[in-house]
């Protein structure tokens, strides 16, 4: 079973991601964070995190800044309401997929299979 972390400041979106991760992704959720700083502290200390579901619009920094400050190397699935950042996403090696909210079951499974 793979481990994942969810970084998302909208609680509704957190619930959706948690549901999909557990029910369809068969993932173990190690933590859920609503800001980048706490998430970084946790993930950088935890080499067992396999996948990070990351929102790009976080209150304290952008998801891309988060990636620049990430020292661990989990696979990253970006989850966002913004359709315009896909080009930037391709610049980051850890990013395996880019999902536009609201999350859809089938597309979510495809993303996990890239991990």
């Amino acid at each position: 079973m793979k481990n994942c972390v969810i970084v998302e400041d909208e609680f509704t979106a957190q619930e959706v991601a948690k549901h999909l991760a557990v029910k369809y992704g068969d993932l173990n959720i190690l933590g859920t964070f609503d800001n980048a700083e706490d998430a970084l502290k946790f993930i950088n200390k935890n080499e067992t995190v396999d996948i990070v579901f990351l929102d790009i619009h976080l209150p304290d920094m952008s998801g891309f800044s988060f990636l620049e400050n990430l020292t661990s190397t989990p696979k990253v699935v970006l989850v966002t309401s913004d359709k315009n950042l896909a080009l930037t996403a391709y610049n980051f090696d850890l990013v395996v997929d880019y999902l536009v909210k609201p999350l859809q079951k089938d597309r979510f499974i495809e993303a996990i299979n890239q991990c």
């Binding site: 068969d26 089938d106 499974i109």
Partner: peptide, 16 residues
């Protein structure tokens, strides 16, 4: 290895 309502787990692969 494991079964959910809508998927099975085979090694590390989630199959719908």
């Amino acid at each position: 290895i494991d079964i959910e309502d809508n998927s099975v787990l085979i090694e590390k692969n989630v199959i719908p």
